[in-house]
Amino acid sequence: MVLESKLRPGEAMIRVEGVTKFYFGEPVLRDINLEVPAGSNLGLIGPGGSGKSLLLKIVAGLVEPDRGRVFVDGHDIQALSITDLAALRFKIGMLFQNYALFDFMNVSENIAFPLRQAGGFEEDAIQKRVKEQLELVGLPGIGHQYANELSGGMKKRVSFCRAVITEPPILFYDDPTAGLDPVTSSKIFIHLRRMQQRGGTTAITITHDIEGLKDICDAFAMMERGRLIFHGSRDAIEDCEIKLVRQFWEGVSDD
């Protein structure tokens, strides 16, 4: 079921080429070019409504761009058949902004869902892995509860478990700490760092929590009104002269 990698040596794991997207005639993404090398974690920042989440959904193949191409693991995702796209997505874990926990399943079933869909796992093994994951994020024994009984931070952690349960080589985090208190946020970042230290994981993280981001990312990109205004390494962003980037990075406004 898992799709063979077509990555050429030296090619980036995720490559976005000239992606443009219109909504009702208005451009919401304009000519985005982006590369994420294998094993690195890209931090994507920018004001609300600048198109970060949309870009992530385009990279995941959930939304089709109007122009441009997206390569993930060497595959042009628009050219993939439905079956191949499904197979490619088993390599991708995604943590959604709105938790996206299925409300007709309990927590264990939610977390086990990607394993069951992938197939080839014994029921015992699935239960064991679900239990392990819940213990790792500090939520043992909530498997039988439903999503609407949980707090925001718990939902995010459960959603995180579901994203990483198949140990995917590619991870997308869409605002993993939105609306959480600082203590819960730092807990979430501990888990994100854990995934990163595992090695070999390529990730894109969207967040407004710059301090947390500095810890886990080795490359950064900033968007404003559908455009990519900065893309570079940690050192580059420290020295960046663009005003908006400076303000975001240092968390100050000039007036």
């Binding site: 995941a60 995604m94 709105n98 926990l101 299925f102």
Partner: peptide
């Protein structure tokens, strides 16, 4: 985004 999550899991 539950529908997106479904699509991500084939």
């Amino acid at each position: 985004e539950q529908v997106d999550a479904m699509r991500m899991n084939a």
